[in-house]
Nucleic acid binder design. Structure first.
Ligand SMILES: [Mn+2]
Ligand SMILES: [Mn+2]
Ligand SMILES: [Zn+2]
Ligand SMILES: [Zn+2]
Lengths: 139, 139
DNA sequence: GCTTGAATTAGACAAAGTCAAAATTCTAAT
DNA sequence: ATTAGAATTTTGACTTTGTCTAATTCAAGC
């Protein structure tokens, strides 16, 4: 057993733990998200979910991803002007972004420190700190 | 004299220094960009430029902003999933982003250090490092 | 088998941005 | 002055990503 990190059953359990009713569509979307190509866009998820046969509508994919974000099950990454990428890893970490290929790679939080940030504007609270290292192929 | 940091003449000069032929439209767009509301979007610039009377088309605003970015005269800020913000300050610095209001505020680079970043993926070169502190109103 | 609330769907719509072709303006010869 | 060629701008159609609303389907509980 344990051939895959995430079975549909373990995704259902993850949904329950985040207070999300694990319907068929939500399980498929979560499953797609936690599978392979780290950091997919909504469009890619829609394609993955419906690869074998039509299973889920566009509206449901967008609604569900928004729900996942609200419930803290996934994170949005805003690095590309034209689409949102989704990150199944919600723990603190940062990213390389290959602007030529449009691909993201994780930077583990361990060892990364930011020093000397000024205090927040008054009355504001931090929602998150993103470090994005934009890269491109040399020469 | 010197009532404004940037006159149309000084914008024209800035364009020339960046190898951009200073046409009427480009000067107006640059002037709008360097005026006030720090970090405008393309849409806001279009509105500013045409506030008094129609002066510049949508295509020219988008083309020109892209040209400015290519020539290194302004910087794009990707912080919002729905629009690009433009930053007339190209020196190294970072940003607070109020996700509720959609407003950016500068964080001067002085004193801010990032430690412990891993080496770049092989064959890649850094294009820039962005730190975005996402904030929202408390409570 | 009904009833009801939750979830999903289709399809129209909106916003931001792109693109190609036509029109205009500029430049620099003749 | 005239004209050719290049650069710039414009128009308007188009694409992509995402949103919205109303209709439909689904899942329990009775
Ligand atoms: Mn866009
Ligand atoms: Mn969008
Ligand atoms: Zn990640
Ligand atoms: Zn700035």
């Amino acid at each position: 057993m344990e051939l895959q990190k995430h079975s549909r059953e373990s995704v259902a359990e993850l949904l329950r733990r985040h207070g999300i009713n694990p319907t068929h569509q939500r399980i498929e979307i979560g499953y797609a998200l936690f599978q392979s190509p780290q950091h997919p866009s909504a469009d890619q998820i829609l394609a993955m979910v419906n690869a074998r046969h039509a299973e889920t509508s566009k509206a449901t994919v967008y609604n569900t991803l928004k729900l996942f974000v609200e419930k803290g099950m996934v994170r949005e990454l805003i690095v590309d002007p034209s689409k949102i990428y989704y990150d199944p890893n919600t723990s603190v970490h940062h990213h390389f972004y290959d602007v030529a290929a449009g691909e993201l790679a994780d930077i583990p939080a361990a060892g990364v420190h930011i020093e000397g940030l000024p205090p927040l504007p008054p009355g504001m609270v931090t929602e998150g700190i993103d470090i994005i290292v934009r890269t491109r192929p040399a020469r």
